[in-house]
């Protein structure tokens, strides 16, 4: 699975971190970090993360 976050849109709300903590996290300054090629078994939670992103900045490309 390939995940892309539009960092021009991202405003560090962190909702994706709650939905998919295996893929998304925040650094100490509260800036988003993420795994761009997570395991297929995480698809449901990554879709959830994309749904709850207030800026709709997360795309699942494959």
């Amino acid at each position: 699975m390939k995940v892309v976050v539009d960092m021009n849109k991202c405003q560090d709300h962190g909702q994706c971190v709650f939905a998919s903590p295996d893929v998304f996290s925040m650094d100490d300054e509260g800036r988003l970090l993420y795994v761009s090629d997570p395991d297929e078994s995480l698809r449901d939670e990554v879709e959830e993360a994309a749904d709850v992103c207030p800026l709709q900045a997360i795309r699942i490309e494959a």
Partner: peptide
């Protein structure tokens, strides 16, 4: 700011 929001998230 962002630090405040992260503080709130700790209570979630």
């Amino acid at each position: 700011g962002q630090a405040a929001a992260m503080g709130a998230a700790k209570y979630r």
